[in-house]
Amino acid sequence: MEWNFKNGIPIYTQIIDEMTMRIASGTYGPGEKLPSVRDLAMDAGVNPNTMQRALAELERRELVFSERTSGRFVTRNEDVLKGLHEELAKRYFREFADKLRKIGMSYAEIAGSVEKWIKEMR
């Protein structure tokens, strides 16, 4: 899978975002073992220390957990995964709403149009 890094944002933050997305979208399913730090670092073309730091942060957020000898795994905790989905959905919605606000739509107009647009997309 492709990794794309943007300028001006720490690589570490961008790795966290990408890994979070992969967990939320089921690329790495609940309970699944993650590739090793080195393999992930090679795949992303980043420093292994940076990858390690990002994974440690995901662990702190309880999205992944370590087993002493066998590696890192995606959480099986459904509440955590549900929370993650909601958090991501809100973030995407905020980005979308911000853009529409910029072109002059009010929240009421956005809310009124969303259903119509979804129908048109189908």
Binding site: F5, N7, G8, I9, P10, I11, Y12, T13, A44, G45, V46, N47, N49, T50
Partner: peptide, 29 residues
């Protein structure tokens, strides 16, 4: 993206020595 540390050298002098991610975070570039 591969670097931990960054050292800038200019006219024979070290003008900056910092973590790459720290630069990105602090300067936004």
């Amino acid at each position: 993206s591969v670097l931990d540390d960054v050292v800038f050298i200019k006219n024979g002098r070290v003008v900056l020595h910092d973590k790459a991610d720290h630069i990105r975070e602090e300067k936004g570039e």
